[in-house]
Each structure stands twice: as C-alpha cells, then as structure tokens.
Amino acid sequence: MATNHIVDARAIHKHFGTLHVLKGVDLKVDERELVFIIGPSGSGKSTLLRCLNRLEEPSSGSIVVDGIDMLDAKTDINHARRRIGMVFQSFNLYPHMTALGNVTLALRKVAGKGRAEAEALGRVALERVGLADRAEHTPGQLSGGQQQRVAIARSIALEPRVMLFDEPTSALDPELVGSVLEVMRGLRESGMTMIVVSHEMGFARNAADRVVFMDDGLIVEQGPPAAIFENPTHERTRAFIGQIQRH
C-alpha cells in the first residue's frame, strides 16, 4: 500500500460488544505534523488513538504506520510499537523501578541495548524532559507533572517516529500542566510527529497544525486551529467549542 503519510488509517470500525464506538474513521497524518483530536467524552477519540498502536484491536479497517501494516498478522507488533510512542493519562510508570529504570526497560528488552548504553540513552531522554537530576527517584517520589515527563522520556528514548498522547494533562493539578506542555512544545519544535487527544485548547490553538473534531464515533470536521475554533462549519462543532470556551 503506497502512502506518503506517516500514519494512514482507513475506515476504522470498533465495536465493544453491542456498542459501536468507531464508525468508519479515516485519519492521515503527515510527517512532522501535530494533529490535535478534540471532542466530547465518549466520542471515540481515545479508542482511535489506542487502535493506532493496536492496544485496542479494530473490528475492521486498515492502519499503516511508517510503512508498516499494523493489522497484518505477519507484522511483529512489538517491533512496530517501539516506533510508536504512547503517553497515558494516568502515566502508568512502573512503581517498582526508578525513573531511569522506567526509561531503559524497553531499550534493553526490545531494542536490545546493553545496560550501559541503555542508561546513557535513558539519561539523555530524561535530560530532554528536564529531569536529569531525578534519574534515581522512584515514581512515588515524583510529582504528577514529573511522572508524566518521565513517561514521555520513556517513549522518546526509543526514538519513535510518531507519538500518541492520550489526555496527557487530565490527571494533573493545574499548576503542573505547564511543565508537561512545555516538554510537548519542545518535542514539536524538534520535528516530532504527534497525535494528541486533549482538552488543552490553548495549546491546540498555538501549537497544532490541524484540529480534528470527533463526535459519536466519526470525524465531524477538521482543519487548521483558527478555522475550527473561529469558524466551525458544523453545528455540533460549534456547540462543543462554545461549551469549552464558556469554562
């Protein structure tokens, strides 16, 4: 399947039992693009994100990431996932390991690096998220914002081609959100391709290349942030934007 998009998802359907969560979603993302997905809760945006690295198994459709057919049974899914970073709402750091241990686990076990090399790379990754001095701390000793930055370091250490962010700031106290967004902005400037599900509309406005509005398992409309936020064409988009801005 020839494609010049780094992410090319077509006609994705997802059923949970009788629930039809994704009803045929197409999403193409260019290299170095930052795509922001917004929409009411239950609209399927997180599910879409989790289908892209097959944490959720799509019921039907096709997904190609960086030239690899993600749904092909012959694809080594573990190898493919290494190239797709994911950041979770609840951080999901390993509580029994230090920050450095969290960052180096996949480097050693999946990328096959030796301990010394993995630790060197891990420290570089922690440096990039501004936590070089926290390498030996366990998650329990870090603030929520620091934990999320370690989680980001865990992904970028593997040099992903794409990064998925699933509501990365929703579980954080307001004063800690800024530090995480700062790291994300730095990633964007370094040219990382990013797909972000989030309610941080300010960040979307000034950092995103494209905003995608989803509702009820479908992409309702998409475009540059200015267009979506100032002149939405669909009634549902307008209602959602209006609701958000009243807060």
Binding site: N78, N92, Y94, L105, A106, V110, R154
Partner: peptide, 21 residues
C-alpha cells in the same frame, strides 16, 4: 491494566511484560 498497556506500547512482549513489569 495501565501497567500492561504502558509496557506493551513500548514494544515489550506479553512474556517480557509479565516478568519485568
């Protein structure tokens, strides 16, 4: 579940996740 997901999303296999995480 998040522990499994985080580990699997970085490419660790089922067995690696079970034993390391």
């Amino acid at each position: 579940k998040g522990q499994w997901e985080a580990s699997r999303s970085t490419g660790l296999s089922f067995g690696q996740t079970l034993f390391n995480v």
